[in-house]
Simulated scan of single mutants.
Amino acid sequence: MDDGTNAAGRFLLTVSTNFLTVPTISESLAGRATILTLWPFSQAELWGSSVGTHSATGAMPPVSAHPTQQSKLTSSAVGASRSTNTVERWFDQDSSLRRAARSSTSRSDYLHKVCIGGFPEVQQLSAHRRNRWFLGYAETVVSRDIAQLGDIRRAAMLPQMLRLAAAQTSSELNVSRWADQLGADRATVQSYLGWLRTAFLVHELSSWRRNRTSRVVQRPKLHVTDSGLAAGLLGLSADALAALNHPMTGPLFETFAVNEIVRLCSAAEMPVSLHHYRDNAQREVDLVLERSDGAVVAVEIKATSSPRPDDLRNLVYFRDRLDAVEPGAFRAGVLLHSGANTLPHDDRVLSASLDTLWQSPR
């Protein structure tokens, strides 16, 4: 790399962890490497949709690329026509989103997608073989990769911690409570959580705030990086999640949706950061997307196939609060659900079938 030839792209280095956070690696390659974060596949990638591109040509660069690099890929590889990336269309207030065609994806279909997730190796496996693959993957990453990279004195606690993360996916992270449940001190839990992030097993949404809005709770919200992995660690099938009032249906559905949006944001032309919102009156918004120019989209996620107007109340509240202090910043509020209809409900607020995230615009 340093021989003076300046031959860009001569080397492709692939790693299974975020090597920039590994303390034992001394060379950062700063200024000499482009870093792409490769998530498990999105539904658009799995089903060949053009969603995620910046052109209507159907050409599709990798949805999982880092946002800065993805914008370079898309601007050079395809034409400059209207975006098909659903997240970008929310920010652009694309009116066609409010009249999307009736969805043919059933709630049962969604739950199967939740339990399969995005790892390419499991897509064609039976449910039994898929769960065995997830357990083997988790054991390999946790017991070998992390244990070898870090100063892990209680390695047996790592699998327990990952299962706890799966059981509490879509929840605010309370490290003190985790420490009590795991029988460990808070500093150890905090350190080991860092290793789960390094190995791309979990990711967190920081709490969203602007100084001119109401006070918010500061805890981040935790998500397992792949909903299929979370379901596999908990031994849950789509049939189990379909049971009335199963406690994990909502959290896993939310994690699946959040992970799909994460992949779309990583392909956006302008960088988008992801957060969650909860104020001191316990009003919550599952996902707050903030573009680098300050524009904001709020997203609520419900596993129900029959959303009610009351499900939109926090989106309306969030819109009104932001309009009052920063007119023009709020672009859209979206309720994603497992039903068939996409309907406008109020000024810049709509409910939409979850598959609008990966179905090509009509």
Rank of each mutant, 00 (worst) to 15 (best):
M60G: 14
Q123D: 06
A352P: 01
Q148F: 11
A303L: 02
S95T: 10
D293T: 00
A44P: 08
T188E: 05
A268I: 03
V63P: 13
I301T: 02
R107D: 02
R89A: 00
L315S: 03
A80F: 08
A166L: 02
L205V: 03
N280C: 08
S171A: 12
I301V: 08
H128N: 09
A242V: 00
Y192S: 00
R10C: 11
S227H: 11
A257Y: 02
L354S: 13
V78L: 06
A184D: 07
A199Q: 02
D185W: 05
R130H: 03
P120T: 12
F200A: 01
H66T: 04
S55L: 00
Q148V: 06
S306M: 11
T86W: 04
R129A: 15
R209V: 05
V189W: 01
S108P: 09
Q282P: 07
S126I: 14
H345T: 14
V202L: 06
H203C: 02
R210L: 03
L173K: 12
R82V: 12
R209I: 04
A268V: 04
D92C: 01
P120G: 10
M248K: 12
W178I: 09
L222W: 14
E204S: 10
K113T: 13
T68D: 13
V114N: 11
A147K: 06
G48A: 00
A7F: 14
D151Y: 08
I25M: 13
N341I: 07
R163A: 12
A127F: 10
L20I: 12
V224K: 02
W178Q: 10
L312D: 02
L201Q: 01
R153T: 05
L193C: 09
R98L: 15
G294A: 01
Y110K: 12
W208K: 06
T86V: 11
S49F: 00
V334K: 04
I146F: 00
E45C: 03
R308T: 05
V334E: 01
I146L: 15
R186Y: 08
R186N: 03
Q160E: 14
A242R: 06
G79E: 08
D3I: 08
R32F: 08
Y317W: 10
N18A: 11
V114F: 05
P251H: 00
V297M: 01
S171G: 15
A100R: 02
V325T: 15
K221L: 09
S71N: 07
A332E: 07
H223T: 01
D320I: 06
R177V: 03
W39E: 10
V202I: 15
D2Y: 13
A184W: 03
D109L: 11
R129M: 13
L233A: 13
L335W: 10
M60C: 13
M270Y: 15
V285P: 02
F91I: 00
S338V: 08
S26Q: 15
P309L: 05
I25S: 11
F11E: 09
R215V: 09
S273M: 12
E284A: 06
